[in-house]
Design a protein around this nucleic acid. Sequence first.
DNA 1: CTTTAACTTCACACATTTCTGAAAGAAGCG
DNA 2: CGCTTCTTTCAGAAATGTGTGAAGTTAAAG
Lengths: 169, 169
Amino acid sequence: MDERRTDDRTDGDAEAAAVSRFVERFAAQLVQAGMTRMPARVFAALLSSEQGALTSAELSGQLKVSPAAVSGAVRYLAQVNLVSREREPGSRRERYRVQGDQWYNALLERDAFLRNWQTTMREGVEQFGLDTPQGRRINETLEFFLFLEKELGSLMQRWAAHRAEHLGS
Amino acid sequence: MDERRTDDRTDGDAEAAAVSRFVERFAAQLVQAGMTRMPARVFAALLSSEQGALTSAELSGQLKVSPAAVSGAVRYLAQVNLVSREREPGSRRERYRVQGDQWYNALLERDAFLRNWQTTMREGVEQFGLDTPQGRRINETLEFFLFLEKELGSLMQRWAAHRAEHLGS
DNA sequence: CTTTAACTTCACACATTTCTGAAAGAAGCG
DNA sequence: CGCTTCTTTCAGAAATGTGTGAAGTTAAAG
C-alpha cells in the first residue's frame, strides 16, 4: 500500500486529485458504454463519495461545472433510477444519492429495450414470412432476445443471492 | 397476413418501401442502444437482405447514402465482428455479410468492456481501501462485474445449445 | 502497361449535442 | 409577506459528430 489516504485528512488536495482521477477514468468508461458525459461524471463522483451522496453545490464544485449542468445530469440519472433525490429537511439543499442496487436496476431497465426489439423483430418476421431466408434470420434474432429476457431475470436473482451471501448490506 | 410480399416480385416498389420501414425502425433502436447511425442502418439492411449479404453499391443505393458513408460503416462493423467482408472472385466488387452468430459475438465483445471496468474498480478499491464506505461500495461493483463475466459465459453456452436444438443451421 | 471499376481516405460543411450564463421559479426563514 | 438561498429552465455559444464530394489507391481486364 502506497500513498492512499495519508490518514484521514493530512493532505486534502492530493486526496482530492486522486479521487478526481478515479472519477474521470470511470466516467470515461461509462461514456464509452453509451452514457452521456455529464451523467457519467456525476454518477462516478457519487459512487466515490464517502456517504454515497452529495449536494448539487458539492458536485458543481468538485466537477468544475455549472449548477445547470448538474441539474440536467441528475434529472437523467433519476429518470433511469441510478440516483435518488433527497430533500434535506430544513434547507433548500438537495442531496443526490446512488442507489444501493444501481447496476441491478440498470440491467433491469434493459428489459424495456428488449421488449421494443422483440416487437420490431416480430414485425419483421411477419413482413418477410418464415419461408424466406430473411424471415428465418430475423426470427432467430427474435428467439435470442426472448432467450435473453428469460435468462437475465434468473441471472439477477442469482446475483441478489450471491450478494446477500457475501456481503452484509 | 396482409400485404406482405405479393408473390415474389409483383410490386417491387411497395416491397422495397416495406423493407425500408423495417430497416429504419430497427436501425433507430440500435442507435438508441448506443450504436452510431450509419453502422446501424447498414447492419439492419444486411439482416433484412435475402442472402444476408449485399455489395457496397447495393447498400449505397438502398440506404441513399454515399459510398464513403458505407465504407466507414462497414469498417466499424467489421471491427466489432458483426459483418465479414467477402471478395467476389473475378470482380472488384466486395460483399458484406452478417455473421450468423452476430449477437453472440456482440455479447462476447462486451467481455472486453467488463475487463476494463474491473481494472478501474480494482484501482478504486485500492485507492480508497476496504475500510472506507466508498471502498466497500466500489468493491461491490467489482464483484458484480466479476459475477457478470462468469454468468455471461455460461449464458452464451446455453444459447448455443438452445439454438442448435430449435434450429437447424 | 494502360484503362477502368470499385472501394477508401481526407478535408470540409452541416447538423446535433452539450454546457454555460442569465433569468425565473420554489422553499425555508425572519 | 418579502428576503434569501438553492435549483431549474431556456436561449445561445462552443464543441463534437456525421455524411459528402473529390482525390487517391488497389486490382481486374483489355
